[in-house]
Simulated scan of single mutants.
Amino acid sequence: MNPTIEQRIQRLEDLEAIKTLQYAYGQLVDKGWDGKEMITDGLEEVFTEDASWESKAQNISVQGIQQISDLFKMMDARSDLFIHSFSNPIIDLQGDKATAKWMLISPMTLGGGELQNMLASYNNDYVRTPEGWRIKALRLNPAYMPKG
Score class of each variant (00 low, 15 high):
residue 1 M to S: 15
residue 3 P to V: 08
residue 8 R to K: 13
residue 9 I to K: 11
residue 9 I to H: 04
residue 9 I to C: 04
residue 10 Q to L: 11
residue 10 Q to A: 15
residue 11 R to G: 01
residue 12 L to I: 08
residue 13 E to T: 09
residue 15 L to Q: 09
residue 15 L to C: 01
residue 16 E to H: 10
residue 20 T to F: 05
residue 20 T to S: 14
residue 21 L to H: 03
residue 22 Q to M: 12
residue 22 Q to F: 03
residue 24 A to S: 12
residue 24 A to D: 11
residue 25 Y to R: 04
residue 27 Q to T: 08
residue 29 V to F: 09
residue 34 D to T: 02
residue 36 K to A: 10
residue 37 E to Y: 00
residue 37 E to P: 00
residue 38 M to I: 10
residue 42 G to N: 08
residue 43 L to H: 08
residue 45 E to S: 11
residue 47 F to C: 01
residue 47 F to P: 01
residue 48 T to E: 04
residue 50 D to E: 14
residue 52 S to T: 15
residue 53 W to L: 13
residue 54 E to F: 03
residue 55 S to W: 00
residue 56 K to G: 02
residue 59 N to W: 02
residue 60 I to H: 10
residue 62 V to Y: 06
residue 63 Q to M: 01
residue 65 I to Y: 06
residue 68 I to D: 07
residue 70 D to A: 15
residue 72 F to D: 09
residue 75 M to E: 13
residue 76 D to H: 07
residue 76 D to S: 10
residue 78 R to L: 11
residue 79 S to F: 07
residue 80 D to M: 09
residue 80 D to E: 15
residue 81 L to T: 13
residue 82 F to H: 14
residue 83 I to Q: 13
residue 83 I to V: 14
residue 86 F to I: 12
residue 87 S to G: 06
residue 88 N to V: 06
residue 89 P to R: 07
residue 91 I to T: 06
residue 96 D to Q: 14
residue 96 D to T: 14
residue 98 A to Y: 05
residue 99 T to L: 06
residue 100 A to W: 03
residue 100 A to E: 02
residue 100 A to R: 06
residue 102 W to I: 03
residue 102 W to E: 04
residue 102 W to R: 05
residue 103 M to H: 13
residue 104 L to M: 08
residue 104 L to S: 02
residue 104 L to K: 07
residue 104 L to H: 04
residue 107 P to Q: 08
residue 109 T to S: 12
residue 113 G to D: 04
residue 115 L to Y: 04
residue 117 N to W: 13
residue 125 D to V: 08
residue 130 P to D: 11
residue 133 W to R: 01
residue 137 A to V: 05
residue 137 A to Y: 01
residue 140 L to Q: 11
residue 145 M to Y: 07
residue 146 P to A: 07
residue 146 P to C: 05
